[in-house]
Computed example of a mutant assay.
Amino acid sequence: MHLHEYQAKQLFAEFGVPVPAGRMVESPPDAVAAAKALGGERWVVKAQVHAGGRGKAGGVRLVDSMETVEKTANDLLGSHLVTKQTGSPGLPIHRLLIETTVAIDRELYLGMLVDRATERVMVMACAAGGMDIEEVAERNPDAILTEAIHPAVGLQGYQCRNLGFGLGLGGEQIRAFTRLVGGLYRLFDQLDASLVEVNPLVLTADGELLALDAKLDVDDNALYRHAAIGDLRDPTQEDDKERSAREHGLNYITLDGDIACMVNGAGLAMATMDLIKLHGGEPANFLDVGGGATADRVAEAFKLILSDAKVRAILVNIFGGIVRCDLIAEGIIRAVQEIEVTLPVVVRLEGTNVDKGKALLDESGLSIVAADGLTDAAQKVVQAARETRS
């Protein structure tokens, strides 16, 4: 689950990570009031959306008068911010973060994530802060400093010092950096985070370290332990279909193509999309109905698929392991009948009771195309989509 910057900074502060003074607002008058309360002569107005690249897209603006604060808030609130991470529709701006300005001496990068290769939390740091870390890693991978945290002993002081010295810090700055990294790791561990990122982490003209930006993602699977964190979810920043899918226990991601996929198992779903691409089609979604797919879940999956106006054909690819193919076939038939699916539906079944499942589809009298094997299914659904488009 993604958090807004202002939410992440509130949590940072609770764990002893220094952040600039700021206030979240939802209206232009509140923005002016926040700037007055913060004091000073210049402020930063930041659009609160779940996407990176806000500054380049005009979502982070430096202002130097109350009139400009109000005008900027009026311009941003209610609009959509389009960045390289949002796609063309962009994300709606309903909240702003008003912050005091900081005299910056250096910009650094600091991040933590779960590294699947080492099965440990990895701390990353780089002297090139304020830039896209992916671009830095591609151009100069040696610039990325890393320390893997052993799960049994946790973050060690020498690891913080290694990173600090690698960033060119010294003296009191090393001690402040060690405290900051320690706070971030406690936050990461106690809140079951999957990603923490500070870009930039700035060294001020006074020699202080501040988290000028904050990104925090929390593992959805751990939210049952963090009810207060779950309450911070902002549904306006999520795709409507993806939100509906989550409510019904489905894993759904919207894509740009016109061939909808309904598959049980993430790996099989990826392979299905690859085959569709290989045979000249474009997937409209990633949809994993899970290993315990039921008739009700299949019906909800069809509703999700049909809510996408660009879909021209549907491929159902089910491997009946935990759930028998005949039960899946019954669910498909019921869903097609109840929802009145008019688009071409290609079904590939394999696994337990596959013959019974195919027989049910054949005897249903519905216009469901049975496929023998994944390649045959991909070819048939790509052709069906072409015919529907023409």
Rank of each mutant, 00 (worst) to 15 (best):
Glu26Val: 11
Val202Gln: 02
Thr272Glu: 03
Gly331Tyr: 04
Gly52Asp: 13
Ala293Cys: 11
Gly230Gln: 14
Leu96Arg: 06
Arg225Gly: 08
Val336Ala: 14
Met24Val: 14
Thr83Tyr: 10
Asp355Ala: 15
Asn251His: 05
Gly16Pro: 05
Ala117Ser: 15
Val181Gly: 04
Gly154Asp: 01
Val369Gln: 15
Asp132Val: 00
Arg312Trp: 00
Gly157Lys: 15
Ala31Gly: 06
Pro151Trp: 08
Leu306Val: 03
Asp142Thr: 13
Ala266Ile: 05
Leu81Ser: 07
Arg95Lys: 15
Val45Pro: 09
Ser65Ile: 05
Pro29Met: 11
Ser390Asn: 13
Val123His: 08
Gly280Gln: 04
Arg334Val: 04
Cys261Val: 13
Ser65Asn: 05
Glu208Met: 01
Ala371Glu: 03
Leu169Tyr: 00
Gly90Glu: 08
Ala385Gly: 14
Val181Thr: 13
Ser79His: 13
Ala193Phe: 09
Asp258Arg: 03
Met270Pro: 01
Lys277Asp: 04
Ala73Asn: 03
Thr146Asn: 04
Glu247Asp: 12
Ala137Leu: 01
Gly280Tyr: 04
Gly90Leu: 12
Ala385Arg: 00
Val25Pro: 05
Lys303His: 08
Gln85Arg: 11
His94Thr: 10
Ala359Thr: 14
Ile314Lys: 02
Leu315Lys: 04
Gly182Cys: 10
Gly365Met: 00
Leu212Ile: 06
Gly280Lys: 09
His226Asn: 12
Glu119Phe: 11
Phe286Cys: 03
Val381Thr: 10
Val69Tyr: 05
Asp75Pro: 11
Gly78Thr: 12
Asp362Phe: 07
Ala57Gly: 12
Ile229Glu: 06
Ile276Pro: 02
Gly40His: 10
His279Lys: 02
Phe319Leu: 08
Leu306Pro: 03
Val298Asn: 00
Ile98Asn: 13
Gly170Val: 04
Leu191Trp: 05
Pro200Gly: 01
Gln379Glu: 15
Leu315Val: 12
Cys261Tyr: 03
Gly154Cys: 07
Gly168Cys: 03
Val289Met: 09
